[in-house]
Design a protein around this nucleic acid. Structure first.
Lengths: 226, 226
DNA sequence: CTGCTTATGTGATGTAAATCATAGTCCGCT
DNA sequence: AGCGGACTATGATTTACATCACATAAGCAG
């Protein structure tokens, strides 16, 4: 609840690292802190985009549900990362839901306050352009994967992407992996089972350790025969 | 080759509509005009991002090739639309290739000149944030489709998206549709054949006319039994 | 008009992965 | 300890789609 602490959090975020103390406290003053329990929803797909969010503590997943009822995980976000921004900028409903995957503290900034703040801070705008650009690059890369590659390759790439962000020990269930790779839990289990047999990963309940990153990369690149 | 004409083109582009005459001519002065023949490549995936591009005339497709050799079409861009921007902002190699699909005139602006221009124009930066946001929303929506929906639904959505941008007469081959939907030419032919039999679209060589948008929307939303 | 190329159309066959079914295992909980 | 609910595992069956293999048709160039 302390604005000073909020400023600290914002400062650590890539987005606001260019701001000086005064600007940080101005922004922190706009932010309200909210807490969420694991599995609690922070926002729902279709809601009006009243707030822009930054994770202070914990982890959030952004999900969309397909017409067949399956859940698709678009991304995980941790401390310092923003979400809900696309809707805020466009003024259209949130295109996906956000759900806490652990106990979370989230900073919420009113849409209009944030837009006003942004209009006079070109550096922050450029940062956001960078972040959006990176996310777009990532999404388009994944699109190509989904269009052309098979499940094993997609999973390998997802594991590598997760590892680059959180290290070699990944605390995700096969179900979550499946929801990220756009496959079923059974298939995710079978594929990770195969990787495990080949010594590329070490699996246990609720976690996967990457044992042989080189082999995983080779797998992700394409079929062995290249 | 006339800077005045370039300024006209830039003005019509959504990105620069907030600029005044002076700013437009300043930007137009930075732009070099280049012409491309159909099928000619404007930039290649992996190239250094030396230029930011805006389509003046004609149509461009942005493509990525999967490890299996298949081509995946990320997007088509027409007059006033930018491309290559993600790489320019991040300073990393272009993540995809751009190829002219018709005779084109393209405005090319040097990376650093554009970044400098942008640093002092928050309005333009906000516009770009909007455009990137829209593209990100679109890419994530498609991701969910690729992860969970069937080819018929994906194709239906692609046809609707194209129709919303270019009207009900779509000048694309089944091969191009297949490359957008991440399927094979044969399957695209079979699926469009089915839609044609049901009177939803009218097909002919190199073009598709949407005859019953409502039915197409119903198809795109999900399986009939809902 | 006559090829030649590019696009469309269709069948037969193969296969990766979904689906359905069932069971075992880990872990928190009272 | 023992219960219940996630999580993991594995087999059998089905299916959407890719792949392979031709056939026909439309547009274009000489």
């Amino acid at each position: 609840m302390s604005p000073a602490k909020n400023a600290e959090i914002l400062k650590k975020s890539l987005i606001f690292s260019s701001l000086n103390e005064d600007e940080l406290s101005a922004l922190a003053g706009l932010a309200a802190e909210r807490s969420f329990q694991p599995d609690e929803f922070i926002l729902w797909e279709g809601d009006e985009p009243d707030y822009f969010y930054v994770v202070a503590e914990g982890q959030v997943k952004v999900v969309k549900n397909s017409s067949t009822g399956r859940e698709f995980i678009i991304a995980f976000f941790g401390p310092g990362e923003m979400f809900g921004e696309v809707a805020v900028f466009e003024g259209k409903p949130y295109p996906a839901s956000a759900q806490a995957t652990s106990a979370c503290r989230i900073l919420a900034i009113k849409r209009q306050s944030f837009l006003d703040f942004l209009a006079t801070r070109p550096q922050v705008a450029l940062r956001i352009i960078n972040i959006l650009g990176g996310r777009l690059r990532d999404a388009q890369g994944r699109l190509k994967d989904f269009a052309g590659e098979r499940v094993e390759q997609r999973l390998a790439r997802i594991l590598l992407m997760l590892a680059s962000r959180m290290g070699t020990t990944l605390r995700f269930t096969r179900q979550e992996l499946a929801d990220m790779a756009g496959t079923t839990t059974e298939t995710a289990i079978r594929v990770t089972g195969g990787l495990s047999e080949r010594g590329i990963i070490i699996t246990s309940r609720g976690q996967i350790i990457i044992a042989d990153e080189a082999k995983l990369k080779a797998l992700a690149e394409g079929p062995p025969e290249i």
